[in-house]
Design a binder for these strands. Structure first.
Lengths: 328, 328
DNA sequence: CGAAGTCCTGTTAGCGTTACCGCATGGGGG
DNA sequence: CCCCCATGCGGTAACGCTAACAGGACTTCG
């Protein structure tokens, strides 16, 4: 195929290859002729052959947990965009469970595909084990992973976000803040619990027991019903917006008004949260930035630069109408 | 690398290759030895080399519109799962806009990656042009695309879904049903409009003017405010659940109760819709099935079997509490 | 007991590209 | 005026795998 182009341009295959990979090393006039032939034949280099010859593939692997979820989906999208802009293509492995086994399996698969680098979106505790024992020599960057790993990590600062949410509620005069968290197996969920707890303790507030949901509205609803029974509860920080939706409903059904009787804060700022009833005060995570950071850190890794990064993206508190002053 | 395994097992490279690709063609005893060596060396075949030799890559391309949206994300996820189960890996191109140019560009890219087949998730009218003029010889399957294409299409039967929603509302005694549709540039949006209109016309009901949103809750809210002003409006079929959320809020703010004064039906059945206020009656699309069908149709295409399929997946009406009898 | 399979394994060549070295050509310095 | 070097291009050999054919040992049947 390359030969065809070469023949048409009246040069050798090698010259065509050079024209495409190191244009400055070929005379302007020849280059013109070659490029014309390339266009004429609509030539596209065969990536497999190129990869075999060079060892590089121009493909990145992304292993992610369930890309149906808002966070992972947004992160993936922005990784993909950044990659495309830099002439990489993206191969995916969405896992429903992140275990050491499944991560290693995906990594092996990517490895045999000779991907140039891998981004692992691993907001799950079970992934930590897999990440700590990475045997591959492929550059790897983790997103939303815990601390203490040998690979660079890019993540939203969950503690800071939770702290902001909690302080916001305290500043409205609430005596303390209840927390409805995500599953203990999720890194992010635990980071939020920590941020929340730290603020309460620092201010000398009582630390109520944490309830654990599974991120779904259903679980938010179920746990919300219990919270609604307790008249002491006047402020709730919920681990994500979906659960917050369930909580809002539970409170309403129990006759407790939001924000007059109870204030609620969510996490994520999903696009719909501004249209919940009432519009939800929440913590916005900039997944866009996370994805693009992750990509660039990976680029650095691949170039051999740096490592051992832990990059925190700052979340932002979005105040809407689900929070208000305490009436205590 | 293959040579190493061969050496360790004391056989030729070819025998190793056979052991991996056609185990029955090699003696059980030899096979054992080879497999032992494979494990010993943790050998993984190089896909680029294999691809160069065979012409097949084991990679599928998926080009999709914004995979942040619920539908495309779910479809992608289920395609990926089906592919993985069949030892294919998936390369993605999420486009923010589907135009003939961008589709062709992605296709070229996939082509030079020698993907074995491509699935195009193209719920957008602008994609039709690109799909009609496909020049590639790669097997292609379209998801959620319009009619009259040369490639097989797998899609949810939007008209049937809309018809069900509309009939449901009429059966509750409403004189007619208003429709808040998605953008006219979206195939699905138009299919829903048609299904809705057909039912109204068939029953001799008045056909109110269609409003067009952009799928977002915001647009649902804005258009909902207008509908809320009109006392004749007692039943609204909304193009998706996000917009329906906005409509619910607009109605509530205008003092119109749902479902007592106005009934609302959405489309998609996003996981949260059961926790809207009130829980939303909606039309469930089985994206899971769409994705897995698409994959299998592509498999057929790749095997040279069939073509010209148009496979409709049946949507399902989920009745919750946002619809009720007319009080007219 | 020999010819004709049958089964298994090995040999050779080639997939399309790039790395590496080598060979012209031409221009400038000694 | 000759030699040396820079510049530009071409030839050849990989990269790691499999297709296609080849050949040897062992059956099987007349």
């Amino acid at each position: 195929m390359l030969e065809d182009v070469a023949a048409l341009a009246g040069v050798s295959a090698m010259t065509v290859s050079r024209t495409l990979n190191a244009p400055e090393r070929v005379q302007a006039k020849t280059r013109e002729r070659v490029l014309a032939a390339v266009r004429e034949l609509d030539y596209r280099p065969n990536t497999a052959a190129r990869q075999l010859a060079t060892g590089r593939s121009g493909v990145l692997g992304v292993v992610s947990i369930d890309t149906t979820l808002y966070g992972p989906a947004s992160t993936l999208y922005s990784i993909e965009r950044a990659a495309r802009l830099n002439d990489y293509s993206v191969s995916i492995a969405s896992l429903s469970m992140l275990t050491r086994r499944s991560i290693e399996e995906s990594l092996r698969q990517f490895q045999s595909q000779s991907v140039d680098g891998v981004i692992i979106v691993a907001p799950h505790e079970s992934a930590a084990d897999g990440l700590r024992h990475l045997s591959s020599k492929i550059p790897v960057v983790a997103v939303d992973a815990g601390a203490g790993l040998s690979v660079p990590v890019v993540t939203v600062d969950q503690r800071a976000g939770a702290a902001r949410a909690t302080r916001h509620l305290l500043s409205l005069g609430h005596e303390t803040v209840w927390h409805l968290a995500g599953p203990a197996s999720w890194i992010d969920a635990n980071g939020r619990v920590e941020g929340w707890r730290e603020v309460l303790e620092a201010g000398g507030h009582r630390v109520p027991e944490v309830s654990r949901g599974d991120w779904s509205s259903r679980s938010g609803y179920q746990l919300g019903r219990r919270l609604a029974q307790d008249p002491e509860v006047t402020a709730v920080f919920v681990g994500n917006d979906q659960m917050a939706l369930g909580v809002l409903r539970a409170l309403r059904e129990a006759g407790r008004r939001v924000p007059e009787d109870v204030s609620v804060v969510g996490f994520d700022d999903v696009p719909e949260s501004a249209y919940f009833w009432p519009p939800l005060t929440t913590v916005r995570q900039d997944f866009e930035e996370v994805g693009s950071h992750a990509f660039h850190v990976l680029l650095d890794q691949m170039a051999g630069r740096s490592s051992q990064v832990r990059r925190l993206v700052e979340p932002e508190l979005i105040v809407r109408e689900s929070t208000g002053p305490s009436r205590g």
